[in-house]
Design a binder for these strands. Sequence first.
RNA 1: GCGGGAUUAGCUCAGUUGGUAGAGCGACUCGUUUACACCGAGUAUGUCGGCGGUUCGAGUCCGUCAUCCCGUACCA
Length: 898
Amino acid sequence: MSELPKAYEPTEVEKSWYQAWLDAKCFEADPASGKPPYSIVIPPPNVTGILHLGHVLNNTIQDILARRARQKGCEVLWLPGTDHAGIATQTKVERQLRDEEGQTRRDIGREAFLEKVWEWKEKHGGIIIKQLKRLGCSCDWSKERFTMDADYSKWVAKVFADLFNDGLVYRGKRMVNWCPVSLTALSDEEVIPKKQNSKLYYMKYELVEEPGVFLEVATTRPETLMGDVAVAVNPKDERYGKYVGKMVKRPFPHTEIPVVADDHVDPEFGTGALKITPAHDKADFEIGMRNDLEIIDVFHPDASVNCPEVPELDGLDRFVARKKAVTMLEEMGLLIKVEEHENNVGFSERADVAIEPRISMQWFLKYPATEETAKAVADGDISYRPARWAKTHANWMDGIQDWCVSRQLWWGHRIPVWYRKEKVEALQEAESLTLNDLSAGDLHVSADPPSDPENWVQDGDVLDTWFSSWLWPFATMQNLDEDSDLVKKFYPTTDLVTGPDIIFFWVARMIMAGFRFKGEIPFKNVFFTSIIRDKNGDKMSKSRGNSPDPIDLMEKYGADGLRFGLMRTAPIGADLRYDEVQVEEGRNFANKIYNACRFRRMAGTDSRANFSPAACETLRPYHLDILAKCDELAETLEDAYGDYRFNEVGQQLYDFLWGEFCDKFLEAVKGDLREEASEAQRDTTLGVFDVVMARYLHLLHPYMPHITEELSVRMGYIQEGQFLMQKELPKTTLLESVDAVVIKRGCEQAAAVYESAAKLRNLKAEYRLAARKDVRFVAKSGPDWLEAEADILALLVGSEGVTRDEGYLPEQGTPGAVTAAGELFMPLDGLIDVEAEKARLDKEIEKIQKEVGKSKGKLGNEKFVANAKPEVVAVERERLAEWEVKLTQLHEMRSGLS
RNA sequence: GCGGGAUUAGCUCAGUUGGUAGAGCGACUCGUUUACACCGAGUAUGUCGGCGGUUCGAGUCCGUCAUCCCGUACCA
């Protein structure tokens, strides 16, 4: 009967449609178009990364927005690309180098190493792009960018030079977050504080002037003792005031250090005296500056001890050295006690090791355009959704610190600074040399290398990856030296979709860059997605192994199923707990749509998508009802899209198709497709089916692009060679120019029939007659139209018939239901277990009496009647009346049994 | 410490001007009639975290407490 297989098989369909869209260049944005622009730039994934569920959610949302915008008549640019991901990528290549060749990057040198990274990028790069294609993403791949493209890199260098010329970029020796594994400085944002169960060591320093008298200090880091240059106490602390200015003995290497006063010290904590190690603690560094103290660095860059004066510790790892230092103190009789102590320790985001506060020469940026940026978000020129993230943004902007932008890596944008060659030796020797020591002529800061390169040496560091990402919205659209059509048409972009975890890393910085370099906001709306967690609420991660491979899911359930399953459940503004059943539901849903269409084709493969409801004389209530519901759906979706309520869009699409179209409409009109049905009935029903389904597929398309495209063609709703994805949504409703009174009447009748059907099915089930088809119903009263719809009602209920009989006198105990389609009875013919039935009725009566009591109490309340909206009171009255009728009926039935 | 969020059916979550508490999954009972068992019909299940307040009426507004998450700043 039908050539279609029983179950929908998405895989091949999805792949072939994606290829067809690509071949027809459906995704390519035309800057010359007269249509209004709509644009998104993709948050560039790591070039060598692979797709995880977070990407799926994020990019599905973007695809939905892009496809919806096309349907609304916009010229859409969804600009894709990848990020070079400095540390992440370099780490991977270094690991490979170590595992396969037993070498470090320094062994093979900068040039050879970079060659290897590019090789790695060529080999592993772009996997994620393929995966995004599998998901159905409608990015304009002809404009794909990479943060290390030559044109893009020019932007990065120019921006650096501009900011340098503004005086916002500076070089200096500062306390930075140092990663002892990656051997580079990190920004504050790349440091993750973690609670640690540490120990607090109490120890004592002897006063030089008063032998035998000790000053007690508490520390969590005894291994930095060699770098101690003072002990600080609070000037208001009466216990210690007398010691300020005196000297104490540092045990090893043995020396005398002063006691200083500083407000920073909390008298309540520990002993109230703090050992000062300016080289290894941010607060100590500041105290050191205030008190003009020496800085003694006792670590190597890898955080092993660098202190030849204390051979016991020299060369040891910092944590090994900690234990050893404690033992030494104990042996010297200087250790007093050890307490358990919980504190926060910063960890490197990438390498996941404790970062080491370390003084080093780095490049810093004072953020530009901070005021405009804070204001744009606070005032809503850029709207954050959910709005509460605006507050997080504001908090961060408030306490903003200069950004350490240099990284001691090789993979990335090299800092565009050159030093005059003859000065370089000095620079290398004396790490303390600052720019102040170089005259203007010795320094070249520019996007272009010096014209006489042989006389210059370029700075060895590269820039933080985010220093290139923050230019993404415009550096992808426009080369430095040309004003492209793309940027004119599509910039500023419309929406940005990303995770809230990178507000600081990326979003806020892009706004600053937008203001500084383009003079305006880079995007109008920012939608923050849910963070996906597993069933237990744990974050998904590779190490936990709780992150399913989206590709496997797509092979099993289809890309459409995966997309829909996630979108329907992803809450707005809260974390998403992922469970595979969601995806399974998505797959089942696709199958449901497919089968509805398959059913339709059994009645003929000719399309009736041109059917006009307004011109049809034979529309029945069910037709009007489903047409009206489809129009309502379109309207509801419009509202939900307007507020970015994607889960509601999904839920509405689901409920309409499954609950309204299949469960109600299709069941009600099935009879029209039987052989014995009239031509007119058949034509009308097929017409309504096609018109509604065509519109529905159109509305569903952004969520499930492949199956909707497939079915639209198969069902003949669009011409071969045309694409649903390029078709604009009609502005007319399906019931355009149909009389509103007719629509209303039809919908009411349909609702009455559906409601009655449900109630009668309940009756059957209650009396354990659900499977019996020979049950008959009698309508003692009912609306005029009841007889015309009686057969359909009977069909829906699974009954032999519903007959109208005004003179019907039910035997006592005959169950019935009062519905909008009349007072309906189900004669039992004495087939019921009397005792069981009595018990059931008693229970029922009790329940309803309770409801009646509640309702009466409410209506008896004068204030309720006076204050509540009239329609609310009316509803309550109707409800009470219904309960009372039902109650009377039940009482009659009960007495009929005894 | 400060800021944000969460707490609704066994599970995952909806519930947008305060007006009889909903869906999906799972459980249970029926059922393969011209689509679909990736299905249909039905049943059961909730002092909406606790306490107080505003109101005729609170899951919804206010206060407070509890538990749990997430940011962020710190005391070494």
